[in-house]
Design a protein around this nucleic acid. Structure first.
Length: 226
DNA sequence: CGGCTGATCGTG
DNA sequence: ACGATCAGCCGA
């Protein structure tokens, strides 16, 4: 599927831009995570911008700099992975430079190749099965898994992290330097193919809840290669 | 497909 | 107490 199986990771200058530019530029790029199963590659199809201390939806709103939000304050390219609702992880990439806590939430990916798709399915099953066992129920096997799992492999921030094996141990990684967690070129997305909408799950953010800071491409638009 | 709900735990 | 969520269940 890829002409070039191992393109180089994107370097610092890609990440040290403002959060809106970075969110748009990340569409079509490939997120790569080395897992015990091998590399998992996902084409990024949906992102959200969190614009720092003045953004009421941001964890850094009002200059809240704590142990949790610290990675957002680090240099562009730093990962910010946090636990939400007690059971899911959300994956962000810091934008801008040191001290400016803008970030991009990665909301959705699709497998970049068949091998990645198989690994995503297994990683999703691992997470689901932990809950099954916890409830005293029989674990799913790769053959008979919940219907809809393949269709909704990584189309949500929690599902994206589960499918790519991303946990809080991946928090604070410099993705411009790391050899196991990084972003590469992927599919060219023309600017006119980028849709925008309101960010999800931030009803508390008053006027900021209406900003069109969620960006996405229809999977059918992912055709041309770099 | 759309709406509702319980699950579950680190953070401040 | 409260989430930058998800899966399961319900009704249409």
């Amino acid at each position: 599927m890829c002409q070039c199986k191992n393109p180089p990771r994107l370097s610092r200058s890609f990440f040290t831009r403002d959060g809106i530019t970075l969110a748009r530029e990340l569409l079509g790029k490939i997120l790569v995570h080395e897992t015990p199963l091998g590399p998992v590659r996902g084409v990024i199809t949906e992102t959200e911008s969190y614009m720092g201390e003045t953004d009421k939806a941001s964890h850094a709103y009002g200059g809240k700099r704590t142990e949790r939000t610290e990675p957002m304050y680090h240099i562009g390219g730093t990962s910010y992975v946090y636990l939400i609702y007690g059971m899911y992880s959300c994956m962000n990439i810091a934008a801008m430079g040191e001290g400016t806590p803008q970030a991009v939430l990665l909301r959705s990916v699709v497998p970049a190749d068949e091998e990645s798709g198989e690994r995503m399915l297994r990683l999703r099953l691992d997470v689901l099965n932990r809950k099954q066992i916890n409830r005293g129920l029989a674990p799913y096997t790769p053959g008979q898994c919940p219907s809809g799992l393949k269709k909704h492999l990584a189309d949500g921030p929690g599902k994206l992290c589960a499918a790519m094996g991303i946990t809080r141990t991946d928090n604070g990684v410099d993705m411009a330097e790391s050899g196991s967690f990084y972003v590469t070129e992927g599919i060219l997305v023309a600017p006119e193919k980028i849709r925008a909408g309101k960010r999800v799950g931030i009803d508390y953010a008053e006027e900021a809840a209406d900003y069109l800071w969620r960006f996405y491409v229809e999977p059918s638009e992912l055709m041309a290669r770099n």
